[in-house]
Design a protein around this nucleic acid. Sequence first.
DNA 1: AATGTCGATGCAGTGACTGCAGTTAACACT
DNA 2: AGTGTTAACTGCAGTCACTGCATCGACATT
Lengths: 206, 206
Amino acid sequence: MNQREKQRLETRRTLAEHALRLFRDQGYDETTVEDIASAAGVSPRTFFLHFATKAAAAFPDHDERVADFIVRLEEGADHSNPLPHLCEIMLSGLGKGLPMRRTRYQLLAKVQALRDEDSRTDRDYEAAVVAYLTKSWGSSLEARVRANAIANAVLGVARACLIAWGEEDIDPQRACSEILSRMFGGPFDIPLQSLQRAPRRSPARR
Amino acid sequence: MNQREKQRLETRRTLAEHALRLFRDQGYDETTVEDIASAAGVSPRTFFLHFATKAAAAFPDHDERVADFIVRLEEGADHSNPLPHLCEIMLSGLGKGLPMRRTRYQLLAKVQALRDEDSRTDRDYEAAVVAYLTKSWGSSLEARVRANAIANAVLGVARACLIAWGEEDIDPQRACSEILSRMFGGPFDIPLQSLQRAPRRSPARR
DNA sequence: AATGTCGATGCAGTGACTGCAGTTAACACT
DNA sequence: AGTGTTAACTGCAGTCACTGCATCGACATT
């Protein structure tokens, strides 16, 4: 890796780090781009060299995550029955979580501008899911509409579970798995099960 | 109704009308708030007296629609098995369409800022659906997470169908109905059916 | 008629974001 | 080593969405 490239990535990382910290500590609206830039020791103009919007700094790893998602989708694909694999990949994606990610989803519940950014990123996942599903179902009008609808539903469930994870002490993977299997598997009249995390190591906050 | 109230509603209506027209004809980004205001014959400052954001002018009837949705949800509610009624009300809502609404969804597919606004309005529907579902399921942690996830899924499907309706010649109600019944009814391996509108009166464009 | 209310307005200001021009330091090539 | 090129960064001026504040004037209330 280049010296230049390394420097660039470092600047980007630093910006994202300070952005998330400031959003969390003093609020999104109360944080200006100038605050973030000066905290990271660069000019405000430089911020926009790395992120298209102020909100985008809260999702710095978006592109990698989507690329990873696409690869994993294609790997074990079963195009005669694509939904189980889709759900599985979706769920395994939820698990990959640094503590930073939780902060993100906590903010997401509060800040509309971040939800906007999230819906922007969701479009990339949506496109990936639609591409995956149309490989199985063809690209007729019906198949495309259906694929789009399913993609929206699955991503909607995942988002809901992640935001809930930001606010409550649940296991997002387990919650999402339960809902998805009910939606695409069985009827909805089976009794509610616990969504609590299985092993509780540290005492719950709040 | 007051003279004042009448005037106020008239100004609001005019603003929304010109806003949508300008967004459609010359593009969202190419339309400034000043353009809209002067087209409606009022001051730019007045625009923000009626709409919180530039994008909100594209959804002027949002509050009424949500209120109507809530009322209809409560009317024939079956709290022992809430999902069929929810789907039914959702679907009947899709039908209520002036031609203006189609323009809106055509724009929605193109303009991110309008999708942002839409996701903002969706939160109100989401809250309504969650309130409805927790009446049946209780407000335990599990029930709330599940209700949120289901709400996101259902709204996601509806949105996908409406956007598809903006771009293609389909019947959004029929498409949405098919997906929802598959999601909450049966398995997904039954053959694709046509989503085309049943009666075609006017010749299709494009 | 006097008084209160509220929609509309003008003005000054903030902050996100852009286009452009310029600097500097790493890089590539010879 | 010397030289031209590239790209990260910077400063500046400008646009536009949006806000707070003070005011004006038509309408409503008594």
